[in-house]
Design a protein around this nucleic acid. Structure first.
Length: 683
DNA sequence: GTTAGGG
DNA sequence: CCCTAAC
């Protein structure tokens, strides 16, 4: 039986055209412009965002050109290695769950970390040891397996810790890899030629550049034993070792984020930190507390899948989750956007579809990113209003294709779906400020559509003439195609489809990266950026749970709508047990009123965890600890931890944790816990 | 910028 | 996770 992919096609836009132009307008802060009445705050915001992005892009290209002088990390490494400035010790990439993480060690750390690698790599772990003498592979292997790999273990092995087994990569593969270290991107080949072959492409995606993984460029230390490395090592070591140093296990387990971070530090020095990230930071700040980050956590999707599979997720919860997980799921944020941007009609809340920007002035061009003004009045002729519709999004499409079908057939399927929908006939609805404008015989003036202040509140809706006419394309054996659910309103489907959960399916990355054509940068730039790019270009593959299989919804939105996505909810990232452990530990010591300190202590390197997150997590932990185990959901937290949560909570709530200066006395090991136990016993 | 608490 | 008042 052929497995099928359902592609729910909820949006379709013409490809992005002009690059964002650098807006010369800056009319002041958001609030002020909003007060202008006519001035659209969002426009300003968008221009600014565009500007920031542009800056970052140019800065990025500058860095890229600098890269010519400073060859890639791996090249540099090889060079340094040859010059004896560094010597390889050991490097590991932990393939934990679905994403890779690379870690460098000092000599001192290596053994310990090695152990950790083996301990914590629950699924896959790539291990390479490179050392001085030339022990046999098997000897090294044994040591690795025993977790006793030391710096003196000398083999030149590449092992893949996969499914709890250490698998040695075939000799020929290794050799070819070694011989081509300088060429970069060999590890991917190694991986794909060995046991990782057949794993989801998302994995491969993570492992492309050996310099990112630091596998062929093992851990670096200066010959003077200084931890610092002349290039990336500095940052990298700081990042990884500090985590180990504070006995924080997060670093090993928090797969994707750490992977991203490591990638970042591995491939770029501090000085060339991805400007995109900086830009985004600034944008984030502009957007108050809104955060925008794209890093689908592959591990999460497994959980999501489980939740869907057992059907235990209540509709309401699922609905919320919808908003959590898929940052690119514009449907789930339509209402939010509307709320945020008020009058902006770039995306309307009730159509599930969009009407994009327009401009009459040629020089402004079709810049959807920075020009939100949908319609501009022709100055020369007040009796006419010009509408230039830049793109329509097709309301919703469902297609279903076998997993074995080709990209080409997918394209054809999409095309057929679109054509089918068009053949079925379309209505166009007009929305003014999100509300449907009724009465076909009323004039634009009567409906106030032509009012200048309304021009940017206008939207157009494409509606299939009949719901039945909504496209459903099936490629392959038609008998296996599911009948699309087209009897509900689009809104209803949007709301309860639970679409975004599945987004975290590993197929997201896989398919997204596959679909990105000519995304040349994606292998060498930081993964952060890669993901951004993917989601920008290919925008979102979402698995849609249908009756039995999950479908994929393709939302190829152009860059035009990117601005509106800046406000999307962050991806939901459930805390892992080890994270909880770190949190509990920190709170035990620091109390419940010092979340910033908690963050610094236990989550300093977990960029995606803010102290607010930690505070929130603590809140839910306390709640979880109080409810019956049957009522808990998600990854179960060990009861022992929950007990500690409760104990710490009780203790600190009776000890005015907020008082600074007290924390010093809690550094003694055990004291705190004993106290807590006593305290809780007395309650 | 942080913290606290409701949503 | 988000939002925001309060500090």
């Amino acid at each position: 039986m052929v497995k099928r992919l359902d592609y729910g096609f909820r949006g379709f836009q013409v490809p992005p055209t002009a690059k964002r132009h650098r807006s010369t307008r800056r009319r002041g802060p958001f609030k002020k412009s909003a007060e202008d009445g006519q001035a659209c705050a969002f426009e300003l915001l968008a221009s600014l965002a565009g500007e920031l992005l542009q800056e970052s892009e140019s800065s990025a290209s500058n860095n890229a050109s600098e890269g010519n002088h400073h060859p890639s990390f791996s090249h540099t490494l090889v060079e340094k290695e040859r010059q004896g400035e560094v010597r390889p010790l050991m490097a590991k990439g932990i393939h934990n769950g679905s994403c890779a993480e690379s870690i460098l060690f000092t000599e001192m750390e290596s053994q310990k970390s090695n152990q950790k690698c083996l301990e914590h790599a629950e699924t896959d772990c790539i291990v390479q040891c490179v050392s001085v003498n030339n022990n046999s592979n098997s000897e090294c292997s044994e040591k690795v397996e025993a977790g006793l790999m030391s710096k003196n273990c000398k083999c030149r092995n590449k092992f893949v810790h996969h499914s709890n087994r250490l698998v040695e990569i075939p000799e020929d593969v290794r050799e070819s890899s070694d011989a081509n270290v300088k060429n970069g991107f060999r590890w991917e080949q190694v991986v794909s030629n060995s046991v990782f072959k057949g794993l989801p492409l998302g994995n491969k995606f993570c492992l492309k550049d050996p310099s990112e993984l630091c596998v062929n460029s093992p851990s670096l230390i200066n010959s003077n034993s200084n931890v610092k490395s002349p290039f990336c090592g500095d940052l990298l070591l700081n990042a990884s070792i500090s985590r180990h140093g504070n006995n924080n296990k997060l670093g090993f387990r928090d797969d994707d984020e750490n992977f991203l971070r490591c990638n970042r530090v591995c491939t770029k020095s501090k000085a060339v930190r991805p400007p995109q990230r900086i830009a985004r930071r600034r944008i984030r700040q502009l957007l108050t507390s809104k955060r925008w980050k794209v890093a689908p956590k592959l591990k999460d999707c497994e959980h999501s899948r489980t939740e869907f599979a057992d059907g235990g997720v209540k509709p309401l919860y699922r609905k919320r989750k919808t908003c959590y997980s898929f940052e690119r799921s514009r449907q789930c944020t339509l209402f939010k956007r509307r709320k945020f941007f008020g009058r902006s009609s770039v995306i309307t809340s009730d159509g599930g579809f969009s009407w994009d920007s327009v401009s009459n002035s040629p020089d402004k061009g079709m810049d959807g990113d920075s020009s939100n003004s949908s319609i501009k009045r022709q100055a020369s002729n007040d009796s006419h209003v010009k509408f230039s519709i830049k793109s329509f999004r097709i309301p919703e499409l469902y297609i279903e294709v076998p997993r074995t079908s080709t990209v080409g057939s997918l394209k054809r399927a999409v095309k057929e779906a679109i054509m089918g929908m068009l053949r079925g006939g379309m209505h166009v609805g007009v929305l003014l400020q999100g509300k449907k404008v009724r009465g076909n015989n009323r004039t634009l003036r009567q409906t106030r559509i032509s009012c200048e202040e309304n021009l940017d509140k206008l939207g157009f809706v494409l509606e299939p003439s009949s719901l039945r006419a909504s496209p459903a394309v099936c490629v392959g054996e038609p008998s296996q195609c599911k009948t699309p659910q087209l009897t509900r309103s689009p809104e209803a489907r949007v709301l309860d489809s639970g679409i975004s959960d599945a987004l975290q399916d590993s197929s997201f990355l896989t398919n997204a990266s596959n679909l990105v054509e000519s995304n040349h940068e994606s292998t060498s730039i930081s993964t952060d950026t890669v993901v951004d790019k993917i989601t920008t270009d290919a925008r979102a593959l979402v698995t849609v749970p249908t009756s039995s299989t999950k479908a994929l919804a393709v939302i190829p939105a152009g860059q035009k709508t990117r601005h509106s996505e800046l406000v999307q909810r962050r991806t939901r990232r459930p805390f892992s047990v080890s994270e909880v452990e770190g949190l509990v530990e920190a709170v035990e010591e620091l109390g419940t009123g010092r979340w910033r300190d908690v963050k610094l202590r236990a989550f300093e390197n977990a960029d995606h965890r803010t102290y607010v997150d930690l505070k929130d997590k603590w809140k839910t932990l306390v709640h979880t600890a109080k409810i019956a185990p049957q009522q808990r959901r998600g990854e179960p937290v060990p009861q022992e931890l929950l007990d500690r949560v409760l104990a710490a909570h009780d203790y600190w709530s009776h000890h005015q944790a907020k008082q600074h200066g007290l924390h010093g006395m809690h550094h003694q090991d055990g004291t705190m816990k004993d106290t807590v136990l006593i305290a809780s016993n007395h309650i």
